[in-house]
Design a protein around this nucleic acid. Structure first.
Length: 422
RNA sequence: GUGGGCGUAGCUCAACUGGUUAGAGCGUCUGGUUGUGGCCCAGAAGGCUGGGGGUUCAAGUCCCCUCGCUCACCCCA
């Protein structure tokens, strides 16, 4: 049998309540802050990601779903959430809107990787970006947005880690300092890190390799190399987070895996050890728009994996569930009653009452079993007797007394039953 | 890309050291006589034991390959 591609998932109905809860919580928090939804294509020109994410990053080097389409264009399935939004901002002239432009989205992200706990080839992210303003208050609001979303869901034990990477003008000096520090120690670095010494030295810092990690303790820290403006920006952000009473912790080794970040970077991580820890993360990217050939547009944003949020809720046993069901089940007892059953179901729905209809004549027993199985609140029986009198029989399924009502009173009767015992 | 663990019904699991026709619970469906559900009872459907090859009189069981799932490295959300 044909099976789903590796690392993808079917999301079955019983997962819907939790999924919906996450998205609704996020959308609510976005709405409360004036973030507006944006949607961009699932496919983008490959160059969008290679130019921004960084040619030396693993995402670009080995994790992108890239292909040439029939016209020969090099395209890639969305590998990351931010670059497409920045592209859309530039392409649609959104710099003419009041700044900052605050946008939010829910998207699929695709990365070719060996699947494991919390890691999939297609995963889903909630994300938000604020473009056109470099105030640290914007950084603070974004962090607040994500933090508040977690809190609204009951995901209260994540630790916020924060760091500042400085600006492009001080990066070379810091990079050199790292190279100077690690080069004499190169033979004690793990393989990957040794290679990164020449390609992407900052990434050595978040290696989980024990020996490398130990060496990182004594490594120069990014904040020691911040320029004046970046230092002030970071200082102000920390102060604003304090004012918002959002606890955080400076992590001098937090660098993130995408090259476009400058100044603020942050991650939310669950307590304890374990792989795939980051639930959400982001940062500032004031140079990203220029990389795309646009004007300079400062920006800050985040992405958070929906699957990982769900993992966190599961860990805390706060997974939203609940069987979605209909209020009424309409039961045609004879073939002659079927048309009236369908009409009754429609009348209920037009009155806003969720109703399922039995699709073939069967015994009351059989229909009631079915109604009970789908946890309907009431059954509406229509047989020869009801047809003859233009009535329907409304039976509460919680043990209440059955009554016969005129056809056009069915919705009201169901409503009364639902309201009597919510 | 590298390494470990695991693949039996839709789900959770059985099947003594290789030995009849691979079972159970849950779930699903159908019944339990006149038009009344949940509980209970009965019955049914549902398996190429992931796939292929090998060893053997005999393979769910042993061996090889492969695919898949899973966990870790790596990477990140």
């Amino acid at each position: 049998m044909i099976q789903r591609p590796r690392g993808t998932a079917d999301r079955l109905p019983d997962a819907a309540p939790a999924w919906r809860a996450v998205i609704e919580a996020f959308e609510r928090e976005c709405g409360l802050r004036g973030f507006q939804p944006i949607s961009t294509p699932t496919i983008e020109r490959t160059e969008l990601f290679t130019r921004t994410t960084g040619a030396a990053t693993d995402i670009v080097q080995k994790e992108m779903y890239s292909f040439d389409d029939r016209g020969g264009d090099a395209l890639t399935l969305r590998a990351e959430g931010t670059a497409p939004v920045v592209r859309a901002y530039l392409q649609n002239g959104m710099h003419n809107l009041p700044q900052p432009v605050k946008l939010c989205y829910v998207v699929s992200v695709f990365r070719y990787d060996r699947p494991q706990a919390g890691r999939y080839r297609e995963h889903h992210q909630i994300g938000a970006e604020a473009l056109g303003d470099e105030s640290p208050a914007v950084d603070a609001e974004l962090i607040d947005l994500l933090w508040s979303t977690y809190r609204a869901l009951g995901l209260h034990d994540l630790r916020l880690e924060l760091n500042s990477l400085g600006d492009a003008d001080t990066r070379p000096a810091y990079r050199q300092a790292l190279v100077d520090y690690f080069t004499p120690l190169a033979d004690r670095l793990d393989h990957e890190s040794r290679a990164r010494l020449s390609t992407n030295p900052l990434r050595i810092l978040d290696s989980k390799h024990p020996d490398t990690a130990r060496l990182c303790e004594g490594a120069p820290r990014p904040i020691e190399y911040l320029g004046g403006p970046a230092r002030a920006h970071f200082q102000e952000l920390r102060s604003l987070l304090g004012a918002l009473e959002i606890p955080f912790q400076i992590n001098h080794r937090l660098v993130r895996g995408l090259d476009y970040y400058n100044r603020t970077v942050f991650e939310f991580v669950p307590p304890g050890e374990g792989a795939q820890r980051t639930v959400g993360g982001g940062g500032r990217y004031d140079d990203l728009a220029e990389l795309l050939g646009g004007a300079r547009v400062p920006g800050v944003g985040f992405g958070s994996g929906i699957e990982r949020i769900l993992l966190g809720l599961e860990r805390l046993e706060r997974m939203p569930d609940g069987a979605p069901s209909v209020a009424a089940y309409v039961a045609p007892l004879t073939a002659a009653a079927l048309p009236e059953a369908l009409r009754t179901a429609r009348r209920l729905r037009q009155a806003g009452v969720a109703a399922a209809c039995g699709f073939s004549a069967a015994s009351p027993r059989s229909h009631l079993r079915r109604a009970n199985g789908m946890q309907a609140r009431a059954a509406i029986l229509i047989g020869a007797r009801e047809l003859e009198r233009g009535m329907v029989a409304v039976k509460p399924l919680d043990g209440g007394r059955q009554e016969e009502v005129p056809r056009d009173r069915a919705a009201a009767a169901v409503r009364a039953i639902v309201q009597a015992a919510p």
